[in-house]
């Protein structure tokens, strides 16, 4: 593998997080506890444990594993949302994180304003978002609501809008966390179509999913994660078999 077609590279990435309890979030209590000599060390948990990984351009990698294995955390590290405690991360190219899309919306703003804001949060220049806004809203089939506040939309409509903005950019790397289809039957088909287009156009995709059938059939390579460690890294069907044997 040459340096050139390497998209994602993680070396010995570990992430240790502090577990917060209610008491430790209270300044008054913390100070009193300290004065009484009852300092409690914050509890720590290793969420990712020395993960090394290389993903090439165009590879479609699935990540499977039980709840709490660190799958979403790993995706957030790749997206730059979380910084590893130790180890190095390199991601080359434009990244589109489809992680709980819609979280960036402000319910008090209009759809147009939200589309622009969301796009700028994703790193797209404002001018470009202004030019694209109408088309994005049309794709979400929400034109009649363009100037309405987002809080007047139903949750399904918000998900449609989120998907429309997040999938409007043409990324080099897509990080997907179980958002393959949103909205009603009609929109579900439409969004799957767009994902399939991305999937087949040679974009590097990392997908966290519990849909073992999909992962087994559509990915080029699958990682099994457990307790923050990669327990299997290889062909999809073998990975699914490995996972099913361990649970």
């Amino acid at each position: 593998m040459t340096q050139h077609d390497r998209r994602i590279w993680l070396e010995n990435v570990s992430l240790v997080r502090e577990i917060q309890h209610e008491a430790s979030m209270d300044l008054k209590r913390s100070v009193f506890d300290l004065l009484r000599g009852r300092y409690t060390k914050p509890e720590r948990r290793t969420v990712l444990d020395t993960i090394s990984l290389e993903v090439r351009q165009g590879e479609r990698v699935g990540i499977i594993g039980p709840n709490g294995a660190g799958k979403s955390t790993l995706l957030k590290v790749m997206a730059g949302i979380l910084t590893p405690t130790t180890g190095a991360v390199e991601v080359h190219g434009v990244t589109a994180p489809l992680i709980e899309i819609g979280a960036g919306f402000d319910p008090e703003l209009s759809l147009v304003d939200n589309v622009v804001l969301y796009g700028v949060l994703l790193g797209v220049p404002r001018e470009r978002m202004l030019a694209r806004a109408a088309e994005i809203i049309a794709y979400a089939e929400l034109e009649p609501y363009a100037t309405a506040m987002v809080k007047t939309l139903s949750s399904g409509m918000v998900a449609r809008l989120g998907f429309a903005v997040a999938s409007d950019v043409t990324p080099d790397v897509m990080l997907i966390d179980e958002v393959l289809s949103v909205g009603d039957e009609h929109f579900r088909a439409k969004s799957s179509e767009r994902i399939r287009h991305f999937w087949e156009s040679g974009i590097t995709c990392i997908i966290v999913s519990h849909d073992l059938h999909f992962v087994g059939e559509s990915c080029d390579r699958v990682l099994c994660l457990e307790g923050g460690r990669i327990t299997f890294d290889g062909p999809p069907r073998a990975a699914v078999r490995f996972y099913l044997d361990t649970v």
Binding site: K76, A79, G80, I81, P97, I99, E100, I101, A103, G104, L121, L122
Partner: peptide, 8 residues
Amino acid sequence: LLLNKMRV
């Protein structure tokens, strides 16, 4: 919530 979903 936003900081947990996007790189900002």
